[in-house]
Amino acid sequence: MKIIAFCGAGIGTSAILKVNAERALARLGIDAQIEATDIAGLAVAAEDAQVILASPELVKFIGKTYADVVVIENYFDLDELTRKLEIALG
């Protein structure tokens, strides 16, 4: 299973999202690969991804995709991440 953590520059915010999504997946006992990427890399990275994690501001930059787009409001809220990942992957 592959999950994308998406941000504008591919550093910083997507890396925080990746770290905390990994913690949320550990809580859920789900094994998945999480890749941080920027807008330039998104199309290729998302080809075989099940889920794209993004902030509300960035959803409009995600093109056509078969992945579930999950909007995360607070990147530091492990409860929000866990709840939304559980729904998306459940």
Binding site: G8, A9, G12, T13, L58, Y75, F76, D77
Partner: peptide, 21 residues
């Protein structure tokens, strides 16, 4: 980055993580 992509750098209530490539 903010002009191009919006205020997504505000990653939690009250907290912005400004950055560029």
């Amino acid at each position: 980055v903010v002009e191009e992509f919006g205020a997504y750098i505000v990653i939690a209530p009250g907290l912005a993580l400004a950055h560029a490539r």
